[in-house]
Amino acid sequence: MMRILAILSAMLCALPALADENIADQYPGSALYSKPVEVIPHVWSAIGATAPPTYENTGHNNNLSFIVTGDGVIVINGGAAYILAEALHGEIKKITNQPVKLVINENGQGHSMLGNSYWSEQGVPILAHVDAAHEFEEYGGQILEGMKRYNREKAEGTFLAGPTETFEDDYIVDMGDFHIEVRYLGPAHSPGDVSVWLPEQSLVIAGDMAFHERLLPIFDDTMTADWLETWDAEFEALNATYVIPGHGHPTNMAQVRRYTKDYLMYLRGKIGEHLDAGGDLADAYYVDQSPYSHLHTFDELATKNAGRVYEQMEFE
C-alpha cells in the first residue's frame, strides 16, 4: 500500500503540468490524447485533455478508464467517437488478452456514449443509468452532429448506439478479483451521472461527480443545490483513498472537494450576496471568481456558470 501511495503521489506532482490546454497531444500516433496509465494495480485510465473537445484532441477530453479483473475487462466510458473507443481497445489488447465484457457509460454526454458505436459492433454489453439513457436518446442526434463539426473525418464510423442495459440505483458486478459497485448517488452534474466504486481498493472512478484541474461546467439542468446535497450525503461518505475524476488526473478526496464542493459553495455564496444586494443577471456574470481563475477552461465557463447559478437561486 505504501508503494502505491508513493507512486500516486509522484503522479500527482508530475502529471498536472502536462495537462495544459496548449498541449495538443501527449500520445502522437494514437487518437488518444494520452497513453493509459496504471493508477493502482489492474485499474488503468487514459487521461483526457483538460481543454474543450477539439479536432486536435479528437474529443478525448475526459478520462477513459478500464479495470483488468482477471476474468475480463470492464471499460468506463465509451469515448467521444468510434476512433477513440477503437484506440482504447488497442491499448487494452497490449496490456491483457482478457476480453472486454462490459462498458459502463458514466452519463449521457457525448464523451461517454458516442464511442458505444464501436463497442456495440464488438458485441459488448453497455450499461448506463436510466436517466443517462433517456438523455442520449433525446439529444443524441444533436450531440453526434456537434462532434462531427469539430472532429471532421475523425468522426467517420461513429453512429448512435445507446446502452443495452439500464439501472436506477446501484448495479453490482463481481468479476474476477474485483467487487464493483456502479452507483447512482443522486442528482449532480448531469442526468444519470454514476460513479464506479471499488470498496476493496478504496478507489472511486467518480465521473462528473467530481472535478479538479479544470473548472467544472454548470449546465441548464445542473441543479447546484442538489449536487451539494448528493456530495455531502453520498459521495463524501465513500471516504475514497483514490479518485479518478471525470476530467483531470487521478487524485484524492481533498483535491476534488476543493474544486467541486468548495467551488459550488463559493459561487453560490457570491451569487447569494449579489441577489441580497438587488443585483441583476447582467452583473451576476461578473461576480468575483478569481480564486479559481488558474483552472483550465475558466475563461470558457466562469461567466456562464455564474449566470446559470443566478437563474437557479433567483427562485430558490
Rank of each mutant, 00 (worst) to 15 (best):
G246Q: 01
L215A: 07
T251D: 05
A10G: 14
L114N: 05
L281G: 08
V204E: 00
A302G: 11
R149I: 12
P28A: 09
Y171G: 06
M253N: 06
P199M: 05
E200W: 08
V287D: 02
Y150N: 06
H111W: 11
V182Q: 04
I74W: 00
V39M: 04
P250H: 07
D276A: 14
I172P: 12
G90D: 07
D131N: 10
P217V: 03
K94H: 09
P250T: 05
L18H: 14
N97F: 04
G90E: 09
G48L: 00
T260S: 12
S30D: 04
A85T: 05
G90L: 02
I67E: 00
I180A: 01
A284G: 09
D220F: 11
L216H: 02
G186W: 00
W197A: 03
V130P: 02
D170G: 08
T224R: 04
Y33M: 03
L275V: 10
A132I: 05
Q26R: 15
H129F: 02
H296Q: 13
L216P: 06
A80I: 00
P28W: 07
F298H: 09
Y150D: 07
G141V: 12
L12E: 15
G115H: 04
G48W: 04
Q98E: 15
L102W: 01
A14L: 13
A188D: 00
D288C: 06
D170Q: 13
G115T: 02
I180V: 15
F315K: 09
N116Q: 08
K154F: 14
P217Q: 08
F211C: 01
H134T: 11
G123H: 06
A24R: 12
A24H: 13
W119D: 01
F167C: 07
S293K: 14
I126S: 04
L301A: 08
L301P: 12
A19P: 02
S9N: 15
A46L: 07
G29N: 06
E273V: 04
Y55L: 09
K270G: 03
S202G: 04
V130G: 03
I218D: 00
N105Y: 06
E314T: 13
G29Y: 08
M147E: 10
L203N: 05
D177P: 02
